[in-house]
Design a protein around this nucleic acid. Structure first.
Lengths: 116, 116
DNA sequence: CTTGAATGATACGGAACCGAAACGATATGG
DNA sequence: CCATATCGTTTCGGTTCCGTATCATTCAAG
């Protein structure tokens, strides 16, 4: 079931999210944090620092720092992999799931108000 | 013609854009810069610093600085309003239009590759 | 004119982020 | 064991962004 979507509609949806971000209708996340969050919540686990760094094509410290910030927000959590204690497994949290859910709902709700 | 879109699909589109941003497939813009850019290119002119600040609910220096950055990228341009020389009118540029167009096309192209 | 209001730009100190390099902890292979 | 490799973290210096306050310019009203 592919989406029937035109460029202008895609841009309008993006503008909705950008305005929500800027207006503090959502907790502020950088693009990198957003990419990490959505990867964790939309793709199947397990997720590791190294795996995320490869997928996003950024260095590992970028992932570590983003996880620090989002961990403090309780949007994600970290756990040592007991099978290989060098790895850190990044897991979803209740707050994170709630945040992502609200983000999706926000786009839908706002887009309904528009002559899109 | 409202879009038929579900939250998961909206999140997937957002993830596409976030990944493109992070991977340097697009020139890096902050959320604020993105909100300003899309407002300028999706809403009818005229656009002023004060008007954008009110619409985004941010202070004027935020707009001025974002325009500095995006002006250097040639994504927008500034012109004194000759009718009222206190105002600055923000206008679209060729590069900016191209950027926005590519952004929309990128989302469409990537979303077609996905089992969305 | 002169005064006051409005607009956009600037100055300043502080916070967040970045890339590169170096670091401990853990696992692997001889 | 021991040497090497891997993984995530930390450190470092530098850049960018932020919020507040202040500024110069321009307009409008008396």
């Amino acid at each position: 079931m592919p989406i029937e979507l035109k460029p202008l509609q895609a841009l309008t949806l993006l503008k909705i999210v950008a305005l929500a971000e800027v207006r503090d209708e959502m907790p502020d996340l950088t693009w990198r944090q957003m990419a990490i969050l959505l990867t964790i919540y939309l793709e199947p686990p397990p997720h590791t620092v190294r795996g995320l760094a490869a997928k996003l094509d950024v260095t590992k410290p970028v992932i570590t720092r983003a996880l620090d910030t989002m961990g403090a927000m309780e949007l994600v959590s970290r756990h040592r992999d007991e099978k290989d204690r060098r790895n850190v497994l990044i897991k979803r949290t209740v707050n994170g799931a709630l945040y992502v859910e609200r983000l999706g709902d926000l786009v839908i709700a706002k887009s309904r108000e528009l002559p899109i």
